[in-house]
């Protein structure tokens, strides 16, 4: 144990070292560490935020897709309806047209048969006259017996 003035020298040296560390060494190092910690914390928070945003975007996209699908289904259904309506209408039109055609044809047939009957009636009248004249062997005055002939034709 030889305590001497070395003690004082060491105390001064210690004090100077403490002062220097407190003033120049510690603050910048701890500042850098704390700033980096803050940066890392911010980075992690940003990553979390980005993750949440991504999730929200995914949900939005899924929502949009779902909506689009529903819309597409609606459109298809409507198209089906429309197509059916068009086909139905075409069918109805066709049926109506057909009936019209049929009616016209029937009318014409009726007309023609009527005409043919007229012609036939007249020919029957002349045939009857010719037949009768043959039978009677004498000429029948067509003008005198017109009334009779017409009555005969009507009866045929």
């Amino acid at each position: 144990m030889e305590l001497n003035a070395t003690l004082l020298g060491q105390m001064i040296a210690f004090a100077i070292l403490i002062w220097f560390t407190v003033k120049f060494v510690w603050p910048p190092l701890l500042g850098a560490i704390e700033e980096r910690q803050k940066k890392i914390a911010d980075g992690l928070a940003a990553a979390d935020r980005a993750k949440a945003e991504l999730k929200a975007a995914d949900e939005r996209v899924a929502d949009e897709i779902r909506k689009a699908r529903v819309e597409a289904a609606t459109i298809t259904e409507k198209a089906h309806h429309q197509a059916n309506a068009i086909v139905d209408k075409a069918r109805e039109d066709a049926i109506a047209e057909g009936q019209k055609q049929k009616a016209a044809a029937e009318a014409e047939i009726a007309n023609l048969s009527h005409k043919a009957r007229e012609v036939l009636r007249q020919q029957v009248a002349s045939l009857a006259v010719a037949g009768a004249s043959k039978i009677l062997q004498r000429e029948i005055d067509a003008n005198r017996h017109r009334e009779l002939l017409d009555q005969l034709a009507r009866e045929i």
């Binding site: 220097f20 560390t21 060494v25 910048p28 190092l29 500042g31 850098a32 560490i33 980096r36």
Partner: peptide, 16 residues
Amino acid sequence: VFWFWSKARKATSGVP
């Protein structure tokens, strides 16, 4: 002290 000071002087909060 100077060793630590030399590092403290150039301390960066980025990649050390």
